[in-house]
Nucleic acid binder design. Structure first.
Lengths: 211, 211
DNA sequence: CATGCTTGAGTGTGATCACAAATTCCTCAC
DNA sequence: GTGAGGAATTTGTGATCACACTCAAGCATG
């Protein structure tokens, strides 16, 4: 008997799709079908439909009036709104994590940040997005605020395909400059500096997008 | 042919359940069954299941390991966290709505507030919750920030059953005191006062809960 | 050559069913 | 009266199916 946590078919499909969307593996506007999803996960339409409904509710996918499922194509206003939500939630989460952030955590974030920098150098957008989110999530998990982190993750989900499009478009060659600021503020225990660093980190990536 | 907006079976069930939860029509811990939901909405299990999955993802319902569906029973920590999320989002939404809040809007809010006060006087918790949320939503709709309002509504959803329990328990007899402050700040165009009024309004209801 | 229509494949929706797991309820022993 | 054990009912899960609708290609018509 296996000790692996059992997960239902619906859950496997949900998690799989969710990761693909959040990590930017799917371009904006990418079309999906229930039968196709079912086939690729080895399940019938029923669990595929449930996973899609759930992801649609979270804004990770969008449905046309006829029920066709695609990855969302966000307009400029929506992107800016989502960015400002990040700018609201992430400094708060970081601040809550600050008092609990001991050295081992900061070291782990440092390692993740190096992997992230490597992904930038190698021009691997998916890996870049993945490690960038992991850098942030590692910190926020310490905030002990599951509801707030949950909300933030749905924001990340909605931005997934757009981030992929942005990062493949502008082919950046330098690592996120504010990660160092975040790490230093954490080491110094400086709440104000930490909040500022996060607001800047969150805002800067989306600053040079054209309408 | 009818011009009424067609809504799928899944959508009718989702909206119906969502309203019941958000307005506090269901006590915390209330159990639901897919077949029961289906019967009460006149549909089969399939759309009922999709609606439940979606509401579960939004935190409006919780599922046991065996798949049993109940209304969530929040502990004190979770309630406080959700309240602090409200305290973060609602002043921001109000502030964004401020510049667009013309007199007709404030008058509408005034009317809603009177209905709300009547519900307090008559000791009708569901009607109280409903009109209270309507008061806030009427304002926030003017913020033109659909994503942020969407996040906030999932927070309201999660708090629905708890609010019902709180308001039936403490049988309040006075209308929410800060609604007047909100209206006055709107009339004065005073951003700082508006933000403060909202933070207080959001926090006060949940202040005297015992662990 | 352009335009409108038809046809066909493809797609989402909702109902139903078989099955396994869980829960409930009753019975019986102590 | 009380608790344990087992049977019967209830419940969620996932597969399958019929159906209606959508969309695009191809044809015929102007």
């Amino acid at each position: 008997m296996s000790d692996l946590p059992y997960q239902s078919a619906h859950d496997r499909v949900y998690r799989g799709l969710r990761q693909q969307v959040m990590h930017g593996e799917l371009a904006p506007g990418h079309a999906l079908t229930l039968r196709g999803i079912g086939k690729s996960f080895g399940v019938s339409m029923t669990p595929a439909r449930e996973a899609v409904r759930r992801l649609t509710a979270e804004g990770a996918l969008s449905m046309s009036a006829s029920g066709r499922v695609t990855t969302p194509e966000l307009n400029r206003d929506r992107i800016e709104e989502l960015a400002s939500i990040r700018a609201l939630l992430e400094p708060e989460l970081a601040s809550r994590a600050l008092r609990r952030a001991h050295l081992a955590l900061i070291d782990r974030m440092e390692v993740i940040n190096e992997t992230n920098a490597r992904a930038v150098y190698r021009q691997e957008p998916i890996e870049y997005i993945r490690t960038n989110l992991e850098f942030h999530r590692t910190l926020y998990l310490r905030a002990q605020s599951p509801a707030m982190l949950g909300l933030l993750e749905t924001v990340w989900l909605q931005l997934g395909p757009t981030m992929r499009a942005l990062y493949t478009r502008l082919r950046r060659t330098t690592a996120p400059p504010h990660h160092r600021m975040i790490l230093e503020a954490l080491r110094a225990g400086d709440d104000a500096a930490l909040r500022l660093a996060l607001r800047m980190d969150v805002t800067q990536g989306l600053r040079h997008l054209q309408g």
